[in-house]
Simulated assay, not measured.
Amino acid sequence: MDEATLRLRLGSVIRAHREALDVSQDRFADVIEMHRAYYGSIERGSRNLTIATLSRVAAGLRVRPSQLLQEAGA
């Protein structure tokens, strides 16, 4: 799988988990102390995530980073 496809899939998985928590994008970004525009770019798959950022997002979603990657097909 190429990098762009992985980013898109990972963003989609992250969005699905956030929506399952019934939390808006803006509210979730506030909770994990991330700028809403930056967080939005993660969900759109236009941002390369560091391990630290992926961990921060995963903690907010109450899942392991490895679960998000597995669901994205990485």
Results as ranks from 00 to 15, higher is better:
residue 73 G to C: 03
residue 68 L to H: 04
residue 36 R to Q: 13
residue 15 R to A: 13
residue 61 L to I: 04
residue 43 E to N: 05
residue 34 M to H: 03
residue 73 G to Y: 06
residue 41 S to E: 10
residue 7 R to H: 12
residue 20 A to T: 10
residue 4 A to H: 07
residue 51 I to L: 07
residue 13 V to G: 02
residue 19 E to M: 12
residue 1 M to F: 08
residue 62 R to Y: 11
residue 50 T to E: 05
residue 29 A to P: 00
residue 32 I to H: 02
residue 27 R to F: 00
residue 24 S to T: 08
residue 47 R to W: 10
residue 35 H to Q: 10
residue 24 S to H: 01
residue 45 G to P: 09
residue 12 S to I: 01
residue 27 R to N: 02
residue 30 D to M: 13
residue 72 A to V: 13
residue 22 D to T: 11
residue 38 Y to V: 14
residue 21 L to V: 00
residue 16 A to R: 15
residue 3 E to L: 02
residue 9 R to S: 02
residue 36 R to N: 09
residue 73 G to E: 08
residue 53 T to N: 15
residue 31 V to S: 09
residue 36 R to D: 06
residue 72 A to C: 13
residue 3 E to R: 14
residue 3 E to Y: 05
residue 59 A to Y: 13
residue 64 R to K: 15
residue 49 L to T: 06
residue 51 I to F: 03
residue 3 E to M: 01
residue 67 Q to T: 15
residue 71 E to A: 11
residue 9 R to M: 00
residue 24 S to Y: 02
residue 5 T to W: 10
residue 62 R to D: 13
residue 50 T to M: 04
residue 55 S to C: 06
residue 38 Y to C: 06
residue 73 G to K: 14
residue 11 G to D: 03
residue 51 I to S: 15
residue 69 L to E: 14
residue 25 Q to W: 05
residue 34 M to I: 15
residue 22 D to M: 12
residue 12 S to F: 01
residue 20 A to G: 12
residue 38 Y to E: 06
residue 8 L to E: 10
residue 65 P to C: 01
residue 12 S to H: 05
residue 53 T to Y: 01
residue 73 G to F: 01
residue 55 S to I: 01
residue 65 P to W: 01
residue 8 L to Q: 13
residue 26 D to F: 08
residue 46 S to H: 12
residue 6 L to N: 04
residue 48 N to T: 15
residue 31 V to T: 13
residue 66 S to M: 07
residue 6 L to S: 02
residue 14 I to L: 10
residue 26 D to P: 00
residue 20 A to S: 14
residue 51 I to Q: 08
residue 68 L to C: 02
residue 47 R to H: 14
residue 10 L to F: 04
residue 32 I to V: 14
residue 30 D to P: 00
residue 51 I to D: 14
residue 49 L to V: 11
residue 18 R to T: 00
residue 68 L to Q: 03
residue 57 V to P: 00
residue 74 A to E: 11
residue 13 V to T: 10
residue 17 H to S: 02
residue 51 I to G: 11
residue 63 V to Q: 04
residue 33 E to Q: 12
residue 25 Q to F: 02
residue 33 E to M: 10
residue 62 R to L: 04
residue 7 R to Y: 11
residue 68 L to F: 03
residue 45 G to C: 13
residue 12 S to Q: 11
residue 69 L to M: 14
residue 46 S to E: 12
residue 66 S to W: 03
residue 39 Y to H: 07
residue 36 R to I: 08
residue 49 L to W: 09
residue 40 G to C: 09
residue 16 A to T: 12
residue 22 D to C: 11
residue 7 R to T: 05
residue 39 Y to E: 03
residue 43 E to P: 00
residue 61 L to E: 02
residue 28 F to L: 02
